[in-house]
Every structure is written in C-alpha cells, then in structure tokens.
Design a protein around this nucleic acid. Structure first.
Lengths: 235, 235
DNA sequence: CTAAGTTAGTTGGACTGTACAACTAAGTAT
DNA sequence: ATACTTAGTTGTACAGTCCAACTAACTTAG
C-alpha cells in the first residue's frame, strides 16, 4: 500500500494485562503469573500480571482479549471487569516500543478458589505493593489498580463484587475494611449500604457462631452507586 | 528474530486521540479536526477528534504523544490532561485491527482563543453529542469523555481548570452549571468550593457591572477534591 | 439626583446523613 | 445457669445541603 505511508510505520507491540483481585484468607490478593524461563523471553522467571499480546485474528476487541486472558488463568469469567488505563512507552519492554491496555477484575472468593493455570499464583497486596519484584512496569500498573479500587470504594459499592452469592452485612463490611485497610463505622455503613440500593435481602438467615444473621445478595442492576460521605471510624 | 515468534505477529495500528474541552460563548465546546480529503484516507473530509499514529521514533510515551497532538492543533499545552481509556477492535478502523489511547484535556477560555491549526474548529457539545457525524468510533469516545467530565464534576473541582487565571465565584459556578447543564444552589456551592481548598482568594477585586467581586485563583496543589453531596438546585 | 434594577455575598431554618457510644437480642461456650 | 460474642437498633451531636429571604454595593434610567 504505497499510497498509505503511515500503514508502514513501525507499530508498537500491543498487549493486554489484567489485574485480578480477590479476598482470600481475610486479605486482598492479586493473581500473578511467572514468566517462562526461556532465555529468549524478557524477564525470564519473573512474576508478572496475567496478560499478553493481542491476537488480531482471534480477539474481537480489547475487552474480549482481557476476558480471554482472565479465563486462561482462572477458568472463570469475572463478574466485574473494568478498564484501568493504558501504559505505553519506548522503554517499558526491552523488545521495543510497546503499549499495554490494563484491565482490573474483581473475583469473589469462591470463584478465586478454583483451578488456576500452572504458572499462576495468588499474592497478598501489602500496602499498594506485592512481595515479589514484577516484570515490565507492572508494579506501577498494580499500584494504579489498588489506588483505583480504594478510591472507588469511597463513593461506590464496588467491593460487593468480591462477595459470594449470599452474604451478611458484617461480612460485606469486613470486605470493605480489608480493601480500604481501615476500620469502618457499623451503623453508618449499614445506613449507606441499604440506601445504596445495590444489595437486597434474601429470605434465609445464616446460622453463624452467634445469632442468625440476615443474608443479602447483589441486585441485578449492578451499577456502582454514589455515596455521600466517607464513614470514618471512631478515633 | 525467529526465536521470538510473537514479535512477528501482526500488530494493531496504534493511535492517540485527544478530547479537548473548553468553555466558549457560554457553552461547553470540543475541538475537532477535519480529515484530509484524499481518497486514500479513511473517512475523507469527515470531522474527527484530534489524534493520529504514535510516532515510535519521536514519542517517548503515550502522554508525550497526546501532548504533542494537543499542541499541534491548539498551540498550547493544557493545564489538565487525563487518560480517558482505550478503544481497540478489529472493526473500528477500515484499515485493520486498531487501538486508540484516548485522553481528555481541559483548556481555559483564554488559551482556547489562540491560533488553531487550519483544519481544526470548535463545536458546541449538545447533550453528549456534537452536531457533525464523527469518523471511526469517535462519537463513542466523545460520549465517554463528556460522561467522565460530568461525573467527575460531582465529586471533584475539575471545572476549575476551565477558568482563566483569576475568576470570581459566580463565574466559577457558571462554569460548573455549563458543564453539568443544570442550575446549582448558590450558598451550597460557595460552602463546598471554599471547603474544597482548591482555590484561594487574591487581593484584588473585579469591578463588574455591579459591585466589586472577590477574585480567586487555582491553588498550586491541583489535586481534584472529594465532595460530600451533590448540591441540587431548588425545584 | 433619585429610583429602580442587578448582582455578590450572608443568614437562618428545615432536613439528611455521618460519628459515636450505648443499648438490646439471640445465639454459643463453659 | 452464667458469661461471652455478635447482629442489629437507638439516640444525641454535628456537619453540610436545600431553600428562601435578606443586605450591601454598584449601575442605569428617567
């Protein structure tokens, strides 16, 4: 196509990466995969976010590509998948100018317990980091994902997507506290959550270690909801 | 590089587009450029968002590329530039699988009044659309940009970046009202704005058509600020 | 020069939702 | 039976919005 010179411009490498969060063992965890040890690969053996090249032949669009990569590593489709942003520069990949489209997904604990790919493993999020060193600029992407998750929690009910199909209000509050890494006020949390209209009570009660507690589930309409204030804890 | 087969995968076309907003003539406007009329181009003569291919040789990263395209069309550098998201699919560009990294910028009126590129022109945003038909999926991107702008206004003081260096509170409120396309409550707006700690009074007063009004300017620390409620108007 | 009009900014009461502590109720453990 | 734990409620204080009415300072029309 000599009359369309820009089509012959060198094109950046294009990838999609997914930051997959779940609450496991009472902690916020993220799924990482270990890069192949082959010397021909960049960052051999280093932990990285799940992701990889866009398949022009197979992927209809970016989100389909993200869903594919999520399913490859976890075997499930996330109930919540949101675009996080994109990172592109001349230096982030040693193979050349590259751009990645990053997504972030929330997985309920029961879905996160399934069969993982052999090279995948859960890691606790500590602060806004993770223990192992990450390949490429994935530490920066993870940082942005944790910040986005935390900031959205302040004015939406996003963490509800981290819950199993049925849950109690104290369980939901515990999930919020894990994500935000700070204690929340009980009665304000309850007022907000019920006003937010994202969850609805189900008929059954849970027989906990103490008195039976009301079970709730996510409503079908899943739009994150605006909150008024930021229920700060006592003290 | 025969041992790195993925490097020889066909790569998507990669572009950067910028949604540039300004308040002009008491309305929210967006900058569009008319695509060249050459028959070899897709969408010849159609209006589109400013943008184009990433220059692997010249652009350090995606944001630098966005700044370059902004400057090319307006001659200025925006005081506010934020990544909006990315759109990529097999069908959005007739030339093949393509992905664009979209940014959105806010320009103060005085900066938006400068010398535009010959192919560029301001258009009023009506609802969440613009009068002319747009090339590619740019209507969808513009829609997302307007929604992002409006939704962020509910809990940040973003529109302050659309103001000239010094402005009065009623002028700022008018800008908010134009962006949100609804009237706001005067005293609540004032309380919030001052509490938000994004603006500070300057010594001078403006001699308006009536009594002198206090001038404010943006503070150096420019972090958008969380707001509590959503000051609804009377009625 | 005066009167009417316009706009900046303030004040006060009704209302809503958070902060916080104290309370009740219903189960469990010893 | 008694003590402990946890789910959920209640009540008071407080902050910020909603709304209308008000004051103050300037402009404009007659």
């Amino acid at each position: 196509m000599p009359e369309r010179p820009e089509l012959d411009f060198p094109r950046p490498l294009t990838t999609v990466d997914v930051v997959i969060f779940a609450i496991r063992s009472d902690a916020l965890q993220v799924l990482l995969v270990q890069r192949p040890r082959a010397e021909t690969e960049p960052f051999p053996g280093v932990w990285a976010l799940p992701g990889g090249f866009v398949d022009i032949a197979g992927d209809r669009d970016l989100e389909a590509c993200a869903v594919r990569k999520l399913k490859d590593k976890t075997g499930v489709v996330s109930p919540y998948l949101e675009q996080l942003g994109s990172w592109g520069s001349a230096t982030r990949d040693p193979r050349g100018w590259s751009a990645t489209h990053a997504y972030f997904a929330l997985l309920p604990e029961h879905a996160a317990g399934g069969a993982l790919a052999a090279d995948a493993q859960w890691f606790a999020v500590e602060g806004e980091k993770v223990r192992p060193k990450l390949a490429f600029d994935h530490a920066e992407i993870l940082h942005a994902a944790v910040q986005r998750l935390r900031s959205k929690v302040e004015y939406t009910s996003l963490p509800a997507y981290l819950m199993p199909p049925e849950f109690t209000l104290p369980e939901l509050q515990r999930t919020f506290e894990i994500v935000l890494d700070r204690p929340l006020e009980k009665s304000a949390f309850r007022t907000r959550m019920l006003a937010a209209d994202l969850i609805e009570p189900v008929a059954r009660m849970r027989k906990g270690p103490n008195r039976p507690a009301q079970l709730y589930r996510l409503k079908k309409a899943r739009a994150p909801v605006f909150f008024a204030r930021t229920f700060n804890p006592p003290g």
